[in-house]
Design a protein around this nucleic acid. Sequence first.
DNA 1: ATGGGCGAATGGCTTACGTCA
DNA 2: CATGACGTAAGCCATTCGCCC
Length: 245
Amino acid sequence: MLDHSEYSTSAAAGAAAESFGCMDMDSLTTSRKKKNKNKRRFSDEQIKSLETMFESESRLEPKKKLELARELGLQPRQVAIWFQNKRARWKSKNLERDYSILRGNYNNLASTFEALKKEKHALVVQLQKLNDLMQRPQEERQCCSEGLAANSIQGELDNGDTTKCESETKPSLSTERSEHGASVLSDEDSNIKAEYFTLEDEPSLLNMVEPADGSLTSPEDWSSLNSDGLFDESNSNNQWWDFWS
DNA sequence: ATGGGCGAATGGCTTACGTCA
DNA sequence: CATGACGTAAGCCATTCGCCC
């Protein structure tokens, strides 16, 4: 059953003893304690031959094993065991190497991930600022219905960099809204939806600047900006976020 | 003196294959 | 001929053991 057939436990010791010429069979078989008493490392020449053979084939054919054993003055069993141990060492060495490669890859990915995370955060902050900027005029207008504020807002919109910025992000958002009390987006897809929003619902509209896939936004980050429900549309996005956050 | 590393060897388990009833 | 039981050889794996630094 065992691969110890080339020589059994006691026979192995006997063979080894014979091989090393230090102990006879009887003394070994009578005392189990003495087994391996004469264990010696193989000589450099023996190791060299074994290594050379191992490089060409990690498993020895029986014929070659016998040949090599005779050549090196070892028992075939010893050669077999050497190959077995060698395969085990080789395997664990490979595992170690593979592990360090994987660890390197992981570290690279982790640093890339961190960089992307920072970049994403910066973008979200930037987006939030833009939304705040877009939201300000509407709120002011809501507070001051007398009209004075409206003029000043309109003036602000018509004025300088702010206007330019606003018109670049959402050109029609604030202008058309003032007339109807409902917001009208320039984006055709948004038109239908927009009709249902009153001024109170304005924050919801701000989400229209969210990227179509929503992948860059987090429910947590947007909870202060969103009205209820818009994120319910995409549970899968939440899972996506869970992974990235 | 001794503790740890390394490699040879062991023992248990599994698989493949041949033989025989 | 097919099949299951059995024996044998060999490999893998975890562990032990002994040598040597």
